[in-house]
Design a protein around this nucleic acid. Structure first.
Lengths: 220, 220
DNA sequence: AAATAAATTTAGATTTGTCTAAAATATATG
DNA sequence: CATATATTTTAGACAAATCTAAATTTATTT
């Protein structure tokens, strides 16, 4: 049985690994992700290597084993199921669910996870639009096309997810009615700052900075 | 913010205090309840006394402060709300919910607790028939009349709760259809062993030992 | 009331997860 | 390519929660 701390390390390593696949995950990247020191990471990584959740080559980096990946995916599953419950059933805003799910995800009971999944109707995506791994750890891959990659004015798009989960950022998106499922139409694109003037759900008009557009995952 | 361990000690001390009210709670009683050693209890009790959750007089015992009681009641509230959710919404048997609720109760979020309470429809009792404290910590007191105190053959009673939460004991009650809400009629009472022959819900007949009868809380 | 037993506390050790500071290794730069 | 810089690891320390064993206090018994 893994400790909460061990689980958090596996989750962080998995997340970083997804962002730049193929490369080993570096000590400092992990410590930055978790807000700990490099020394703590080295210690924990040794322990997780002993337990066969990953391989660690000194001064080089870390790579998750099959078992490590499976565990990380199970955590992701638990996290996103709880987020869905908190949002759909308890009425929490999408900016509130992450922090609570961070705690709920550490309750280790396969039966609880599966029952929750069934109760929610086997959802495929969480409130941020992120895919929820199933019992076997597989999930609906999707192209990660962000709004900033679209250059055609007049094009209509559907928002399917958001990359950044920062509370204030999500509150801002709430304010402008931008959430997964929203229909957006590009009215114009700023020539110099690459900002996006868009219409949301055939109603509100807003200007998004390039940085914001970079966080919005869309379906063309 | 209290640690999980501190919370467990407060809960145990509250529980023991309820069982023999007016008396100080003893070190060995706490260590037995939690499965720790007396030395560990002394250490933790000192810490909780520093934090004003209780008073500790050496070699005499421990008494919860107002703050300590409030915290214990909040824990009880969280525990019993989660038990209700697991039973009513996720379909867990009453013999399974305790262990999971032991973990879920430690998630400290007043908003989560209150939202869960509202989602469940502000339940007054958990699946074992135990009262759920409200936001202010007050709950429906009830007489704790157990089946073994009834001596009249032919009397019809309603089961409202069970004292013992042991998994195997609850499984046994499941088998004979005995759960809160069940109607029981006393057919006969054993003269020497004080066992109870009863009819449950106008259907099944069973013999309960005195020990079992002592765990069944009823409404006359 | 002295001796014995039981309960409680203290003292010192252990495990987990963390830290700082120093040493070792790798990377970048003049 | 030798040196400066950045990264990582090691060594040693600490807080939390626990333990065992010894010392202390309270309760019981003869």
């Amino acid at each position: 049985m893994l400790s909460t701390s061990e689980e958090n390390y596996l989750k962080a390593i998995y997340k970083i690994g997804q962002m730049n696949a193929g490369h080993p995950v570096l000590t400092n990247t992990i410590s930055a992700e978790l807000g700990t020191t490099a020394a703590s990471v080295t210690d924990m990584v040794k322990k997780l290597a002993d337990k066969k959740f990953l391989t660690h080559e000194k001064y080089y980096g870390v790579i998750l084993s099959k078992e490590g990946q499976k565990t990380a995916l199970d955590l992701l599953r638990r996290h996103r199921l709880w987020e869905t419950f908190l949002h759909n059933n308890l009425g929490f805003g999408w900016e509130e669910v992450h922090e609570l799910a961070e705690q709920l995800e550490h309750i280790q009971s396969k039966k609880l996870t599966d029952r929750l999944d069934a109760f929610l109707g086997h959802p495929k995506f969480d409130p941020h639009g992120d895919p929820i791994p199933n019992e076997q750890g597989s999930f609906t891959y999707r192209n990660q096309i962000t709004l900033n990659s679209i250059q055609e004015v007049g094009k209509k798009l559907i928002m399917i997810a958001v990359k950044n989960q920062d509370v204030d950022f999500l509150k801002y998106l709430n304010n402008i009615q931008l959430k997964p499922g929203a229909v957006l139409e590009i009215i114009s694109i700023g020539e110099y700052d690459r900002s996006y003037k868009i219409r949301i759900n055939q109603k509100e008009e807003t200007v998004l900075t390039f940085e914001v557009a970079h966080e919005i995952i869309i379906k063309p």
